[in-house]
Amino acid sequence: MRYELMYPADIRAAIDAHTPTVLALGVLEYHGEHLVTGVDTLVIVRALEILEKEVPMVILPPFYYGASSFAVEPPERKGSVHTGPQILYPFAQNLFDNLLRIGFRNIHVFVHHQSENFTAGMPTDLSFKLAARQATFSFLEKERGEGWWGNAASSEYYEQHNQGSDPFNWIRIHPFLSPEIQAEHPIDHAGKLETALMQSLCPEGADMQRFKTGTWYTESAPQATKEYGDKVKELILDHLRQTLGSHE
């Protein structure tokens, strides 16, 4: 279900059913001459479009305006759009504040951009991770009052935490490619992997006739095939199925 096309009754039904609410979080960034700028977001969007046919979920409008940085190329005539963490963090907290007030408690954000550093974090995912925690703390304090964690009603907090059912699992941020997938198929930037994923998930956004040599990060792109992209896509879809089905 697309959130923007849901009636209020649909929203209430999704809340009551604890339906996963999913956000594709990405950037607009230069990916060589052979790929479009929305790669990091589009691969998530297209995977969710496939998955929504079999897994009940609420799909929020994707967010394309993350922190791309200009580390790859300057933006002039190349297309990268960079939004700094000082802007991303308050936006994300406000978004999560709204989603919690509406009633969602099974929120998932998927990130592909720079997610090879997911454990340490990079500006986009760190902004949303911190915002998720702060929004949850703020919501709990407003709902339960100061001292909510220390009162008797929270005596089973650690047991709930171990079971994955505590409030800090209401909003979770995930890498689009799991660590296991990355170990077998390392992330690149506009190289073999990303080009193949686009050939599989968003073929209109990959055109090898436009490919140009001269950048080290795109050197492996000619090795990409749709068949390879299909293989990784299936691993990703399995990862998404497990992730969205794991919240009790």
Rank of each mutant, 00 (worst) to 15 (best):
Y7M: 11
D10T: 11
A13K: 15
P20E: 00
T21Q: 04
V22A: 00
V22P: 05
L23W: 01
A24C: 13
A24E: 02
L25W: 02
Y30T: 09
H31N: 13
V36N: 12
T41L: 09
V45T: 05
L51F: 03
K53C: 10
V55D: 04
M57G: 03
M57K: 02
Y64I: 10
A67M: 01
S69Y: 06
A71D: 12
V72A: 13
E73Q: 12
V81P: 02
V81K: 12
H82Y: 14
P85H: 09
P90N: 08
F91A: 07
F91V: 01
Q93W: 01
Q93Y: 03
Q93E: 14
N94F: 08
L95F: 01
L100Q: 04
H113T: 07
N117Y: 14
T119N: 09
S127K: 08
F128Y: 12
A132G: 11
T136H: 00
L140N: 04
E146Y: 15
A153K: 14
Y157M: 13
N162L: 15
F168P: 02
F168G: 03
I171M: 05
I171F: 03
R172Q: 15
A183F: 00
H189T: 02
A190L: 07
L193R: 09
M198G: 04
L201T: 07
P203H: 03
G205Q: 11
A206G: 09
W216H: 13
Y217P: 00
A221R: 03
G229S: 03
D230K: 00
K231S: 13
V232L: 08
L235S: 02
D238H: 13
H239M: 05
